[in-house]
Design a binder for these strands. Structure first.
Ligand SMILES: [Zn+2]
Ligand SMILES: [Zn+2]
Ligand SMILES: [Zn+2]
Ligand SMILES: [Zn+2]
Lengths: 130, 130
DNA sequence: ACATATATGTAATAATATAACATTTATAAG
DNA sequence: CTTATAAATGTTATATTATTACATATATGT
């Protein structure tokens, strides 16, 4: 049967919040902001986050323990992610560069091993902060 | 005056532990293992870790909140790091690939911005686990 | 000897994340 | 519709990771 919307209630609430945020959100910031919607405890937040990461709707910025909505319609599987992170204002942008993705996806190390997933974080100053 | 060894006592103890480990170590694992040497509290561990990361002697594996010794004599500044991480056995290897480093160091995004630092984590299966 | 920066020791607490278990809701099959 | 199964939710407690704050000590340069 055809499924109109694949997000559950909590997942949708949390996705909406992250999606409309201009900056990465931390789990407990999310928790605080969705308590008015009935989501009261950490596990509810973390479970939704896990699912959203798993399906590529959001990504975790590992160096910040924070989450951003995916801005790249081509990466539902979340296996090839790259971000630019401003060291001054904390701004994060998802990088969508086909050449970069191709280069890294096809990268093989000295033993010839290839990898099925990567995450790349660039750090510097954004345009505003330069 | 000439300085023989640039690590303080706590820094040296903690570096030695990480350096002889075959796997990434977490802060509280480190704490547990150096208590016999007189390091008794988290701030002592985290301060040493911060300094060691800052000087490039160790690196933090962000996706694991764990630390490995630098195996790449050329990256004292810790501004261009890449790792391969086995999803099965947790093994981590630092990647030292001049071409990759060059490619990423000279990468500029669509707005022409260049970045002064990056961290790249590849995920897959190591030779043993394949 | 003095000033300054770096490192240490210690207690308390903050921030991030998971375990465990009961219950409910959605989906699919018979 | 009924039943079986999987997915999601609610709730309490706890585990793990990291920092604040403040007192003291050690190293470094003049
Ligand atoms: Zn994406
Ligand atoms: Zn900025
Ligand atoms: Zn290194
Ligand atoms: Zn392995």
């Amino acid at each position: 049967m055809y499924k109109e919307n694949n997000l559950s209630k909590n997942q949708q609430i949390i996705f909406d919040l992250i999606n409309k945020s201009s900056e990465p959100l931390k789990a407990y910031t999310i928790l605080f902001n969705v308590q008015k919607k009935g989501i009261k405890a950490p596990p509810q937040v973390y479970r939704a986050l896990d699912k959203l990461v798993e399906t590529g709707k959001i990504h975790k910025i590992e160096s910040k323990n924070a989450f951003v909505a995916c801005r790249n319609s081509g990466c539902e599987i979340s296996k090839a992610t790259a971000f630019s992170i401003c060291e001054s204002c904390e701004m994060v942008d998802e990088i969508n560069d086909a050449k970069l993705t191709k280069y890294l996806t096809s990268f093989s190390d000295k033993k010839g091993t290839k990898y099925k997933r990567f995450n790349l974080e660039f750090f510097g100053l954004c345009k505003k902060c330069k």
